[in-house]
Design a protein around this nucleic acid. Structure first.
Lengths: 213, 213
DNA sequence: GTCTATAACCGGATAGAC
DNA sequence: GTCTATCCGGTTATAGAC
């Protein structure tokens, strides 16, 4: 009757144990939410005992914080890689990533839980805001480069137009919004919609730079 | 030592009692989340006893569902009103509404809680999806009218362009995305950004209808 | 470091008086 | 319909053996 829980390979490596534990925590927190998740279930899922978790993380909240830190770090690395290739590859990459994320129940729920927790805790909120700023900064740089490359605007700033940072904000807002939409109702968001909308937006920007106001 | 809780005017009206109860539930569910909220605290906030809640709603889940139904119904009415006036008033109305919603802690948290709950329960999810479809439909109608009015496209459909429903999806995604962004970091979203981005988008659409591709 | 056992507490839900 | 009192199961966290 012992060790009914899944996974049981942790013998030895303290580093691996941590990873296994965080993975189990991700699963249970995602599925049940922070308050709905019990430390006991996390322990069972990881194949360890509650005692181990408490000796390692101290308490439930610290476990969740560790998980979230890990999650955000991984995410920012990923985003950076995708954006590195310029607009063309960037867009199809983002399309793919949007579908992938939206269609994964696990990712969806963990994202949502991260969000609500951040809304309730100033500390987590700041961590998430910082993460957003980094991503937005990367997007703004990409936008700027793209503009220079297509020669929409010479290096010297000339007219009161929509700033790179605002475009970046729009790109991210659109991304998150479509994510939300597709999670809620997958059929309502075509696989390439994000890319097409961004193109539309960039056409609007070109028009703004050329002619009227 | 009795009745320390706030509010105590329910005597008599069973209808008013319900409203008071739902308001208290909204407050506590928002602040603590579904699992974090205790029926006892809701009762105290409403100034009634737990027994009353159970006799009226049966259990905690049913109370939450009732709250959510109420919340969505109110919201759809509001959205309909705002969109009724066409693009011009519509936009500034949406700008206002975005700020209002994003800057209210209570609204923010309740929205978020609605969302995560919907992600975990097929029933709630369908209710929220239906609500979204209604709103999106209204936005699509508005988009179509606007297009006809500015004569971008004659009543006869002619070219493979971005459809009204896709534009509506974009409008809503942008809205929700900016909402998220402003909630997280108010300074990163200017008060009129939504309106300006929509204008940019519509310029892109015009370009699409005219010339290339 | 990890286990088992247990303490201490709190939550949802119900019973039954009024 | 609303109250008070109570049951019961589950939760976090700790103690102490190994």
């Amino acid at each position: 009757m012992r060790n009914e829980g899944r996974r049981r390979w942790a013998r030895g490596g303290t580093e691996r144990t941590r990873a296994v534990l965080l993975e189990a925590a991700a699963e249970v927190f995602a599925e049940r939410g922070y308050d709905g998740a019990s430390v006991d279930e996390i322990a069972r899922t990881a194949g360890v005992s509650v005692g181990s978790i408490y000796s390692r993380f101290g308490n439930k909240q610290a476990l969740f914080r560790a998980l979230m830190a890990d999650f955000l770090e991984r995410d920012v690395t990923l985003a950076r890689d995708r954006l590195a290739g310029g607009l063309a590859e960037g867009l199809s990459g983002m399309d793919e990533r949007l579908l992938e994320t939206a269609d994964s129940r696990h990712r969806t729920l963990l994202d949502a839980e991260t969000w609500v927790s951040a809304m309730r805790s100033p500390e987590l909120r700041e961590a998430l805001a910082e993460h957003d700023r980094e991503t937005r900064g990367a997007a703004a740089r990409m936008t700027g480069e793209e503009r220079e490359r297509t020669g929409q605007t010479s290096p010297t700033r000339q007219a009161p137009r929509t700033g790179d940072d605002e475009v970046a904000t729009a790109l991210m807002a659109l991304y998150h919004g479509l994510l939300r939409q597709r999670r809620l109702d997958p059929d309502s968001v075509a696989p390439d919609l994000y890319g097409r909308l961004v193109l539309l937006l960039s056409r609007g920007l070109a028009a703004e730079a050329d002619g009227g106001l």
